[in-house]
């Protein structure tokens, strides 16, 4: 296990040839204040580059979703900085943050959160509608071909309640891609799907990642999906560690052995 280090400006320049950094955090801290303050993230330094597909794993309540919200400028840190495409989000006001999200970030959630009042096509076009008020013919055609690409060619005029969970999630992927963001943040996108639909959705995200070069950060509990990512980040005790696929496999094997021991012990 090794801590992910911060690249200095000079290191970034020397690392030319590598794709540019799209999201970066430095000493990122988050504490939820309430009657009792709950510290969640204790100082996180990560860099996500274009074209990367990063899996984030960790126990429930370890702060994965909190990290994702911070990476997408949906939430503000209590310490440290988040840079999205080089812009420090703490320097932006609410409207500028909204604009940044619209330009640079796409979200996919465990639940599709499509708008029930709109069709699949209208939902996919929503980020563009929000930004410009309406949609040009070219944009509409681009989204329609993307929908056809994810297998929703004949479902475009259906509403979310007329489509299956997998279909809705595929529609949500197209929606996340609508404004050609630099990064897509996916919070357990397959968590609510059966394994076959889940796999389909994951494969689609992987394809989009390879084709358009958009970076993906995906929270998952599915170890097989984590193994299929480029990098694996583990959140533990409010800190983040990058682990290699071997380390991850070993952890999986270790957990499997523990379970077996426990099971035999019980019986």
């Amino acid at each position: 296990m090794s801590e992910v280090g911060i690249l200095t400006e000079s290191e970034r320049v020397t690392a030319s040839g590598a794709p540019p950094v799209v999201v970066e955090t430095r000493g990122l801290k988050k504490t939820y204040s309430g009657k009792v303050d709950v510290p969640v993230l204790h100082g996180i330094d990560i860099q996500i580059r274009a074209e990367e597909f990063v899996a984030v794993i960790g126990q429930s309540g370890s702060g994965k979703t909190t990290l994702l919200n911070l990476l997408g400028a949906l939430d503000v840190p209590t310490g440290g900085t988040v840079l999205i495409n080089g812009i420090d989000i703490s320097t932006l006001d609410e409207d500028e943050l909204a604009r940044l999200r619209s330009d640079q970030v796409g979200f996919i959630f465990q639940f599709h959160y499509l708008l029930d009042e709109f069709t699949c096509l209208e939902n996919s076009l929503m980020p563009i509608t929000i930004r410009h008020g309406d949609v040009t013919e070219e944009e509409r055609e681009r989204i329609m071909s993307l929908l056809a690409r994810v297998g929703l060619g004949d479902r475009m005029d259906n509403r979310p309640d007329e489509m299956s969970g997998g279909e809705n999630q595929r529609c949500a992927i197209v929606r996340a891609l609508a404004c050609s963001p630099k990064i897509i943040l996916a919070d357990e996108p397959t968590g609510n799907l059966d394994s076959r639909s889940g796999e389909e959705v994951f494969e689609l995200m992987r394809e989009m990642n390879r084709e358009s070069g958009v970076a993906f950060v995906m929270i998952t509990h599915d170890d097989r999906l984590a193994q299929a990512a480029d990098r694996i980040l583990l959140i533990e005790d409010g800190l983040i560690h990058e682990i290699s696929k071997e380390e991850h496999r070993e952890r999986m094997a270790g957990i499997a052995r523990e379970r077996a021991v426990l099971r035999s012990g019980v019986i």
Partner: peptide, 16 residues
Amino acid sequence: SKQIGILKSMGVRRRQ
């Protein structure tokens, strides 16, 4: 409220 949340994640501004 959930819909408002998702819209904000897509870049909808307060005044919208």
